[in-house]
Design a binder for these strands. Sequence first.
RNA 1: GCCGCGUUCGUCUAGGGGUCUAGGACGCUGCCCUUUCACGGCGGUAACACGGGUUCAAAUCCCGUACGCGGUACCA
Length: 491
Amino acid sequence: MRVRFAPSPTGYLHIGGLRTALYNYLLAKKHNGSFILRIEDTDQSRFVEDAEADILASLAWAGLQYDEGPVKGGPNGPYKQSERSDRYREIADVLVQSGNAYIAFDSTEEIDALKAKHTSPTNPNPRYDYSTRLEMNNSLTIGAQEVSERIQRGDEFVIRLKVEPGQSVVFNDSVRGGVTFESDAVDDQVLMKSDGLPTYHLANIVDDHDMEITHVIRGEEWLSSTPKHILLYKAMGWEAPQMAHLPLIMSPSGGKLSKRNADTLGIPVSVSQYVEAGYEPEALLNYLALLGWNPGDDREIMTLPELCEAFALEKVGSAGVQFDLQKLLWFNEHYLRAKAPLEIASAELEAVCSRFGPVTQEFLAESIALMLDRMSFSKDIIDFSYLFTAPSEFDEASLAKRWKSDSGAVLLSFCNDLAALSDWKAPSLEASLKAKLEKEGWGMGALMFPLRMALSGLPSGPDLYRLMELLGKEEVLSRLNHAAATLKTDQ
RNA sequence: GCCGCGUUCGUCUAGGGGUCUAGGACGCUGCCCUUUCACGGCGGUAACACGGGUUCAAAUCCCGUACGCGGUACCA
């Protein structure tokens, strides 16, 4: 089994593209096959300079390693279509020689004129096909002599697929079952553009054949182009690969998840945006795998090897799927909490230090261990500033409600107990606090709230004893004294 | 317009004639845990697009309608 992911460097890798790559990867690995990466850069006008680098970087980030492809190479290279032009030209010539394709000289103006002529309310999009091609300037209507003269002269021309009407093009799709198109509805697609480069349709089938691709897994937007590809394989006498068209990923507002409608909903569409936002690659992959596929049981949290093991094209759904950022977030939180605090700390150390000054990796790891249950992304740790510096603001609403006139005095009184405490560990701190409550006859809230407020400036947060242990005696006493001094007269 | 594909809780889905008073997950929500919040645990909420068939029996098969999506380029 050999599959390929064939993105076009006309933009950064799209989240839907990553899912297509993932499904290809999963199928290949499931069957011990090869996963090939091919760059389809045949459109010079839409070429984006750093798109290819972004595609490679995004796949690497996701951990989808390809067996053959650009940079890495392989037995069927090159893996960039711009470097395979001769081969496409060769095949195009074969198709013209065999009568399955023809040369056309029509200018854009002439084609526009054809369309204008045939446009009517019942036919809003006239095609260049069997019904109109004899009205045009092509090797079907011009003598062979003149055709070669015009080519000699340097006239621009394209090569079009000659689609004969009256045939049913049938193919089996692994996701959708049998699909039938009538050739009457297929136009004489351009195969070679006037710039000498192939269109997707030609390059794609030539490469898939030459690279011995056995399964084509791609987005549903290609479904209606498939009859052209089937016809092309037939014209060349090549066996077509097994087809599988994946359901499209839709925006919650409807339609394809495009840059525009996703951005307004706060949904990133480029993989690089997910990298930047701090998503864990395992989370994105796991979420994407389940977007249109399921393992056939109730499992949801699955590692890449588990996904490979369970994957089957037959379990891929055929209806479009809506992207749900909230569920992705759930996956992300799950994977984040499964990580070692020290590992997260090493990733975030630089950012934390540059914001708050020197912090040791050990201290950061302990802070993360304390905060992990309330983090969604590893970078969230930086938002808990009170771990690294004394609070400069205190939540006014809860202060007004719960800071009593004696709260400052309560804090100072407890400070005396704490100052005498030698074992600065959470259990001792808890024992000390409870002893204080008992001795003074205070309720839990009378001390807990002022304490939390003084230490973090917030009415809620992590376990206080552990927080106090983490901050250390000196820092805690300093914050308590400061709060008692500054907050006492407010109310 | 034409061609193609699709339609089960708000979302992702299980289901493939009787086991469906339709299961799981996210979300939302109640309770428990807890100094608080979060995490976690236990509950709740909510769906077979519609209309005809076929059948003893239909979410499941067939037809039609509606709706959605894709395509209709010298873009991929």
